[in-house]
Design a protein around this nucleic acid. Sequence first.
DNA 1: AAGGCGATTGCCT
DNA 2: GGCAATCGCCTTT
Length: 198
Amino acid sequence: MTSGTPKIANSLGDIVALPAPQAAPLLLGSIITSTHGGAVVRGIITELEAYTQDDPASHTFRGPTKRNAAMFGPPGHIYMYFTYGMHYCMNITCGPQGRGEGILIRAVQITDGIETAIQRRYGDREPTAAQLKNLSNGPGKVVQALGVSMADYGNDLLDTQANVFIQPGDPLDPKRVHQTPRIGISRGQDTLWRWHVE
DNA sequence: AAGGCGATTGCCT
DNA sequence: GGCAATCGCCTTT
């Protein structure tokens, strides 16, 4: 680099290396793409939540385990977990290697491959208006619509050759961004670590 | 070795 | 809005 442009946290690699609560709002509006099954499904990340290691709501609160190992790996990788006996959710790992932080992707606005997403969520039946609205507005729904699975555990989300990857999105209108407590947790409700756009 | 419960979803009232 | 479904993980005996 010969220009005098200062190095700022403007690339995804820089962003995911930040602590999760700093990275999360910066990743809102990013593009996530899945090429699973030979079909491209792509969407804009519209809701996410940050989790840190000293956060009682986090899977990493009690230290590394086999389940949460990816959270302690390099940033920008996939941490998947299985919950409630039937649902999978995906995270973007954050912070430096060795630090158990990540961002739960809670909602995506599908922009490409919506037919494939509908097929994965509802099968061949024509979706109702309600079903279309609920296509990918929850963490388990996002995973299902994108066709992500535990096979993607630990994979690099910044590798555009991977089956699942993220890329920068268009800037968001700050007026459309809302910050709230996280959803579905019994502890750690004091922090405003959920961000979403309308 | 066993039990409780969860970063959820969808259906039922 | 309330609650059942369903099972792997982690904590506790």
